[in-house]
Structure formats: structure tokens, C-alpha cells
């Protein structure tokens, strides 16, 4: 097995980030085309704030709406994938620092990961 070092870690992290962004952009674009095809001619402004519908505000709500072929939920799914990309990056760094046996950075990375998961998993 190849040696784990910072340089190799950085290269893999870069690929991981790019893949996550491209995947989420593709899903957002797909949902966007579908949404515009259905509602492109309707007026829109977003001048007055009304919180997005409940089904677009949690991961379970979004996946449920995607299953009902809701185009806006497909966009939202892409956005959740995007939000998950840096989280995956941190999780990957955790594993990599563990392979490098760098205890300080395993601890540092665990703290960051805990904060991110708290924000994403719980309803606020």
C-alpha cells in the first residue's frame, strides 16, 4: 500500500470535492430544467419572505418529495448533496489522519465533524 502523507491526502481531497460539486451541480441542473419546463412562464419575484415549504426543509422531507417526482425537491436534493460535500471531506480527512497516526489532528477533525453533523441532522 502507498504511504499516507499530506501531499497524497490533499490530492484525494481535491478530487473528492470536485466530484461532490459536479454531482450536485448535475442534480440541481436536472431539477432546474424540469422546474423551468413546467413553470418557466409563470411570474416570480421572491420579494416577500415565506419560509420554503416543510418538505424542502429536511433531508427526509426532500427525499420523500423527490420520490413523488417533485422537480423543486430534485433541486433541493442537489443542494443537500452540495452541503454534504465538505462534510464528506472532513470525514475523509479524519480517516487519513488516523492512517498517518496523527492523534492531534484526529482529535481536531473529530471536533469539526461533530459540529457539522449537529447542524445537519437536527431540526433547528
Amino acid at each position: 500500500m502507498a504511504v499516507w502523507n499530506d501531499e497524497r491526502l490533499e490530492r484525494i481531497v481535491a478530487k473528492l470535492l470536485r466530484a461532490g460539486v459536479l454531482l450536485s451541480a448535475a442534480v440541481v441542473l436536472l431539477g432546474g430544467i424540469c422546474h423551468l419546463a413546467a413553470h418557466g412562464a409563470e411570474p416570480v419575484a421572491y420579494r416577500k419572505f415565506q419560509p420554503a415549504e416543510a418538505s424542502y426543509r429536511s433531508v427526509s422531507g426532500i427525499t420523500g418529495a423527490v420520490a413523488r417526482a417533485d422537480c423543486r425537491a430534485v433541486i433541493q436534493l442537489g443542494l443537500v448533496l452540495l452541503i454534504a460535500t465538505p462534510v464528506a471531506r472532513v470525514a475523509f480527512s479524519l480517516v487519513a489522519f488516523a492512517f498517518e497516526r496523527d492523534r492531534t489532528y484526529v482529535f481536531v477533525t473529530l471536533v469539526v465533524l461533530a459540529v457539522l453533523l449537529y447542524s445537519l441532522i437536527f431540526s433547528h
Partner: peptide, 13 residues
């Protein structure tokens, strides 16, 4: 982002 999502600030359109 998690807080923004559950507060409905992220409007897909």
C-alpha cells in the same frame, strides 16, 4: 447551512 435549511431560507427556485 443545516440551520438555514430547517428555517426555510433555502428556496430551490
Amino acid at each position: 447551512a443545516g440551520v438555514y435549511l430547517s428555517r426555510g431560507y433555502i428556496e430551490p427556485g
